[in-house]
Amino acid sequence: MSIRDMIRRLQLSMPIVCAALIGFAGTAAAEGALGEARPWQMYYQDAFSPVMKEIHEFHALLLVIITGIVLLVLGILAYIIVRFNSRRNPVPSKTAHNTLLEVAWTIVPVIILVVIAIPSLKLLYNSGRTPAYDMTLKVTGHQWYWSYNYPDHGDITFDSIPIPEADLKPGQPRLLSVDNPVVVPVGATVQVLVNSDDVIHNWAVPSLGLKKDATPGRLNETWFRADVPGVFYGMCSELCGVNHYFMPIEVHALSKTDFDAWVTKAKEQFASNSRSPVNMATSGAIAAR
């Protein structure tokens, strides 16, 4: 059984936990996949986007290669300890050169690296180039919360404030839950534009294969597509000050119908928040002065 099979088995054996979840404003409860680690987790979170699935596949290959290398070295070390200790081998050899061997351990690693580089670059270009997208999501980092803007949906704009431990409802994980999660439709390719209002943050959701710096003065682009309905958690991934540990990201993927219903409601609820995305990009730097 290859390691790849073992990993697949491991993944299957871990039940995809259906979480009863905080829908929007306590009404629409979403059910589905859960993008969160489990206690004693030793491997990746389950993958729910095309990029994260490709990362899983590529990592399975890498894991075979690196495990092989570590075991090879460990095996040689063990043999040396048993065979070439001073009791067993009192007279050391004088060999200090072997051209064939030296060429071999230069060439073989090069071949292994080529085997790695091909899928690596494929993954890089798939994740690094945004395909034709269905909608845009603007993400802005602040010390210490995220705000979101939907330019294609009537400019919905809202802040996503972390929920303090004392206010958590049952089922809401500590340090990961926010009052207004970011909502996207299942199966839609989302272009994400990431920016910051103050210091550098990083918008990251492991189970969706997302991680992009939010840097003031830069509009960074990434993309994702949630393949299944569910809730996906992430945390700020660039040191941003005293509350860096408590700056969660919560993504809800809803069916098209539920998403449309959410848009209608959100337009009403966040009507007073709307501002032009152009201002958002520059206001931070000016405010910082």
């Binding site: 994260m52 990592h59 890498l62 690596s120």
Partner: peptide, 16 residues
């Protein structure tokens, strides 16, 4: 693990 991290594509799952 450095060989793993060298790959920009997979680094986004490990960075930070």
């Amino acid at each position: 693990t450095g060989v793993v991290l060298a790959n920009a594509g997979i680094d986004l799952s490990f960075h930070d």
